[in-house]
Amino acid sequence: MGTGLKRKDLLGTRDLSPEEIGLILDTAISMKEIASRDIKKVPTLRGKTIINLFYEPSTRTRTSFEIAGKWMSADVINISTSSSSVVKGETLKDTGLTLQAMHPDVVVIRHSAAGAPQILAGLLKASVINAGDGAHEHPTQALLDLFTIREKRGTLAGLKVAIVGDILHSRVARSNIFAMQKMGMQVRVCGPATMLPRYMDRLGVEVFSRIEPAIADVDIIMMLRIQLERQGGGLFPTLREYSKLFGLNLDRLKAAKQDVLIMHPGPINRGVEISPEVADGPYSLILNQVENGVAIRMAVLYLLAGGQAAAN
């Protein structure tokens, strides 16, 4: 006899236990098989309603949740800022109360303000899944990253990973740091000093301001997207200089392990943080990450749907 997640919401990886992470990853293995079928649909969430509430534009994450829900036969409704009352200045609280009146089972939220999913979770009976809030967390991205790594390496504990880029503004970095550490991985971060939050070392990660030593002996290199609009904002002078100092190219990769895995949460800026040869190279897992995203989100939807019964 197994058991679901003993929680209503998935707001971050920081408050997940290693057992919960393991359960989600294990469940995703079964979900991934469904993607290989001719008929990509199981009736598991028939009659359940999932609302994708996106306050920030996102194609891949929203689509991934939408496919995950639809493959499990849930009704999936997308609400984005451009097509809802959000633009009319409705508060998150009122939006939440309005949604509650429609009795959704799961609300997936993407928001530019950290903590917005917490507000929603407090308002709704439905399960709330954080699909990225400000620079805070993006738990399903971290889970799919772990899944992808485990799929390639068979294990997580003991692996070394270097996360390179704008750590300061990255919710992907935060969720990955918390989750990877829980699973026994060693995490390094690397980026311009202006984009490395102070006190990073107190999270138990090693901090590098040069990429060469950071990637020298790691099993995984995770490149983060550099936000083009941050150029000239005082954090780094130009993309050209950033690319020269921190971009991952074939030349730099020679310093890394032969079988190092390359990851990127996407969307990538080809030729800026990662060169096309590396992004499309044999050790690049970038497309595996996208594929596994659906399986992870199916697993999370399934486990939260059952978790509600356990909580009742």
Binding site: G2, D26, E33, Y302, L303, G306
Partner: peptide, 13 residues
């Protein structure tokens, strides 16, 4: 789903 006391673990087909 959601009615059982405990949720069964999904295994592979």
């Amino acid at each position: 789903l959601g009615k059982a006391e405990t949720q069964p673990v999904v295994r592979r087909t």
